[in-house]
């Protein structure tokens, strides 16, 4: 069945494909090459992560997740989500499937927003591999200080939006 997200992606694909085609400079062909590379890179990982996540969903007691990270747990899910997101030392496949697992087990949207936002900003592997070398330790320190509240603020705003 066509979900809203699939429809949105199809519409975007058609619109961007039209723009690329109108350029008439080989953009479509280059995009297709890139697409093939990305499929080869992401799809096997994604399938394996989904399989692993399916087993994880069965093992993790969903009552525990809904008690500590669910909507009824108040503000604490935002705190737990934000701190956990900062500590995930892996790429998007792991971070997002963990979030999908938590969502499937009853975690609150605010906790998921805090978790994903924290991971996006503070992905430890990215900081170590890229930021320290490409931006320098001083810039990195300033960025970490000023961005530290962001996951919690985003989670708080989501909490307000979903409980209004």
């Amino acid at each position: 069945m066509l979900s809203p997200s699939l429809l949105l992606l199809i519409a975007l694909l058609l619109a961007l494909g039209y723009v690329a085609k109108r350029r008439n400079d080989g953009s479509v062909e280059r995009a297709y090459e890139r697409f093939k590379q990305q499929i080869a890179q992401f799809l096997p990982r994604m399938i394996l992560v989904v399989i692993g996540t399916g087993f994880l969903l069965q093992i993790i007691p969903s009552e525990m997740i809904s008690t500590h990270l669910g909507k009824d747990a108040g503000w604490t899910p935002i705190l737990y989500g934000g701190l956990a997101g900062m500590l995930v030392p892996a790429g998007p496949a792991v971070a997002f499937t963990t979030a999908a697992t938590l969502a499937g087990s009853g975690a609150a949207p605010a906790a998921l927003v805090a978790f994903i936002t924290a991971w996006c900003i503070f992905a430890i592997h990215r900081i170590l591999i890229y930021e320290t070398h490409l931006a320098g330790p001083r810039f990195l320190m300033i960025r970490c200080i000023v961005a530290a509240p962001i996951p919690f603020v985003a989670g708080f705003v989501t909490h307000l939006m979903t409980n209004f």
């Binding site: 997200s5 992606l9 975007l12 694909l13 723009v19 350029r23 953009s27 890139r34 989904v50 399916g54």
Partner: peptide
């Protein structure tokens, strides 16, 4: 269920991302 739901979306999403990368 997850794979059947995700695979079409991921394929489309990668197509969109590839076009953005070029454009």
């Amino acid at each position: 269920e997850m794979l059947l739901g995700m695979l079409p979306r991921i394929t489309m999403a990668l197509g969109v991302a590839s076009l953005l990368w070029v454009l």
